[in-house]
Write a protein that binds this DNA or RNA. Structure first.
Length: 310
RNA sequence: GCGUAGGUGGCAGAGCGGUCAAUUGCAUCAGACUGUAAAUCUGACGCCCUAUGGGCUACGGGGGUUCAAAUCCCUCCCUACGCA
């Protein structure tokens, strides 16, 4: 059997999970979630995590694998996903990667090799006190190459670059390697109006299903409000509501607004990858996928990445 | 009805004679993205143009003072709180 994987991506509330299960059933696949928050245990309602029932017996990987007290990163995700892919191939099934976290998807599809430098939280805390100008100057001294290209006003990026340069001298170029399998990326693109409607329905449903209670539970389990804020608007605003900082109405409107902004950010990310085949209906996806699976393998990773990187 | 405080761009809210098409925040639109990616960050944001420049219309309505007004004066309309 040829090594082929399917990627289903798209913004929130576009119907990825449901589509993935359907496809999985049709092509004998198993699902890998590429979602930066669904990896956490206990973040269910707010992340729109698929339920046991909805899985319909299809195995799902990289879900509920870490405590929300821990910080999970792309590198952790890559490990999880790579392992899952191999496991699925070993069972003679097709891996279906589903998610909305662009960086996570790219990490596996392009088999990105990240610099072997773990986050140094102490250093980061120190650097955070500095201005971006100061950090930029530091980086320039450490690694002028990276400094040339970096977003010099972005503290996150500067900190990470300095962190790497301090340990291994310089920030290596992004190492994209050809994966040992072929991927078809299918993106769900819906008209703005529909997506907005879906988002509203989704948020309201989350609230109805007990999002506020879930947030409270996270707090009671020992997480700080600050940490809970980090889990995104689905948790941040309910958390603020629980602290009486905002009204219920404000909570809802904030969530709707930020959800839309998030969806757009996701699309901005996905748009640059010209390999993605955009669809709006299930049937289109099925057709594409069936055709892809029938085709002879054609690993042309090099061309693909060239396309991708513009 | 008297008193006071106000009416500024989609909203909130600065400015209180020239350097103001108007600080800032939010929203909106576009974009970036090398271990927090949910994150972080950038740009645009009155209208029009031959666009690192030019023109037009703007700070509740109308009138006035001034070389010059969002900024001062008069008047009208409206809002909030206070007193009746």
């Amino acid at each position: 059997m040829s090594r082929k994987t399917i990627v289903i991506l798209g913004p929130t509330a576009s119907g990825k999970s449901a589509l993935a299960v359907k496809i999985a059933k049709k092509i004998n696949g198993e699902i890998i979630s590429a979602d930066s928050r669904q990896v956490y245990k206990g973040l269910n309602i707010g992340t729109g995590k698929i339920t046991k029932k909805e899985m319909g017996g299809i195995p799902h990987y990289c879900l509920d694998i870490v405590s929300p007290k821990k910080i999970f990163t792309v590198a952790d995700f890559k490990k999880c996903a790579d392992e899952a892919i191999e496991k699925i191939f070993a069972r003679n099934k097709t891996p279906i990667i589903v998610g909305g976290t662009g960086l996570y998807i790219q990490a596996i599809v392009d088999n990105i090799v990240l610099p072997e430098v773990k986050p140094d939280w102490k250093l980061r805390k120190e650097l955070e006190k500095k201005t971006t100008e100061e950090m930029f100057a530091m980086l320039k001294k450490l690694d002028s190459e990276r400094a040339k290209k970096i977003d010099r006003k972005n503290p996150r990026r500067l900190i990470r670059a300095i962190e790497i340069a301090k340990i291994i001298g310089k920030v290596p170029n992004l190492d994209i390697q050809c994966p040992s399998w072929e991927a078809l990326q299918v993106g769900i693109k819906l008209p703005d109006e529909i997506l907005k409607e879906n988002i509203e329905k989704r948020i309201k449903k989350m609230l109805k299903n007990g999002l506020i209670a879930e947030t409270k539970k996270l707090k009671n389990s020992g997480l700080s409000w600050k940490r809970i804020y980090e889990f995104g608007f689905e948790y941040k605003y309910p958390a603020m509501f629980l602290q009486n900082k905002i009204s219920k109405d404000d909570m809802l409107s904030k969530m709707l607004i930020e959800n839309w902004q998030y969806a757009k950010r996701q699309m901005t990310w996905f748009k640059r990858d010209k390999r993605i085949k955009w669809i709006s209906k299930e049937k289109q996806a099925e057709k594409l996928i069936k055709y892809f699976l029938k085709q002879n393998p054609q690993l042309s990773c090099f061309d693909n990445t060239k396309l991708y990187l513009v």
